[in-house]
Amino acid sequence: MRLTLLPSIVLFAAIGGLSSCHNGDTDNNSRNSEQSAQKSARHDPDFLEQHANDPHALENEFGDEAHAACADGANDYLREIELHDFSWDDDAKGVNGQRFDKLTTHSEAPYVLTLVSTRAKLANAFGGFSHITLYCSYDAKQQKVLGYSLTDPLLLKLESDLKNNTVPTKRPDYIPSTEPVDRSEKPTISFPQPQPKETASKDNDLDTQATNFLSEYYQIAEQSPEQAIPWMMAHYKPVVDFFGKSQSLNQIIAQKRTYLTRWPIRSYRLLTDTVTHQCNQTNMICQSMGTLEFDAQSPERKAASHGKASFVLSVDFSGNTPQITSENSQVISR
């Protein structure tokens, strides 16, 4: 019988291969054991009880599940409260996008993680998008989302507790001052000087212009895109502070056109007792602010939205045609 001898290098390789396979199995078993231990730890009542009010510990253990669950239901919540439209920042879109980018350091309740997103945007009644802060409460013990909110849930809880008198309050004791009071000096009273008639007349004239422009603006906002867009192109500056962001006229018109098309039926009613004007006689710019009621409908989409919104509109009256320099608004109720 002839024996074939393998070179020593082959034998070493074979032994090494067997050793590697064995070590690989050990590593896999070790990883599986670690994963099993992690899973069991997540369902371990002792772990939850020990870290029930520790958001960071809960986030380390349940963060993946919490982020995934909160992201899954966020769109549904935004559709429920949608006044006009909503969107997400680019880094929050897609499979790898992270919608909730922060974690509150306080615990609103035992076992609850409160994730925060600053990457969602809601459209307002005037065609502009504004970032919102969206909160998601995830219960690590029940492994489910408890709800979403645009206000910190802890503040809502404290407000509810105060209303129900479940938070004890104590007025500080009044301690009268023992310091002597100097009454030798009599207080001086100053009276405002009367404003020159010419300046007052000009200010009143600017106020009137601002009032008339505001009325015209919201009348135009009720018109069709074919009627409203030409007016807007003439009455906006080339660059405008539009909802907190510097935008060109073309960018603004594109947003306005989208909004006017999306909501073909629109009406606005200024609450005149809330409207005020602050006019600068030097640069001829007036800032108008107040509250209005809005109603928007889309029969084709079977959608409707109505409520109240606050607004701030700055207009330059120095030229032949008044032009908007900045615009902002916020929905306050619906």
Rank of each mutant, 00 (worst) to 15 (best):
E226C: 01
V275Q: 01
Q278D: 11
L292E: 03
A254C: 06
A228I: 10
I220P: 09
C279A: 13
T208V: 05
Y259F: 15
C286D: 09
E226H: 00
M233Y: 03
T258I: 10
Y218G: 02
I265Y: 04
Y268D: 14
P196E: 12
Y218T: 06
I229M: 12
R269A: 04
Q193Y: 07
S201I: 14
Q247R: 01
T261L: 09
T276F: 10
Y236H: 10
R266A: 11
M232A: 11
G244N: 03
H277Y: 07
L292K: 00
A228W: 10
L249C: 08
I253C: 06
M289E: 15
T276W: 07
Y218F: 07
S224M: 05
T274W: 00
P230I: 04
I229K: 14
G290S: 04
D203A: 12
V275F: 01
A200I: 05
Q193D: 14
S224P: 12
L214H: 01
M284C: 08
K245D: 12
K202E: 01
H277T: 04
Q193G: 11
P230V: 04
E222S: 13
T258D: 13
E216I: 15
A221R: 12
Q227A: 06
C279V: 08
I253V: 15
A200V: 07
I265F: 03
Q193M: 14
P194R: 13
R266Y: 09
Q297F: 02
L270I: 00
E198K: 15
S298C: 08
Y218P: 00
A221S: 13
S288W: 11
D205E: 05
N204S: 08
D241T: 11
T211K: 03
K237C: 02
F213W: 15
T199E: 04
D241C: 02
I285Q: 09
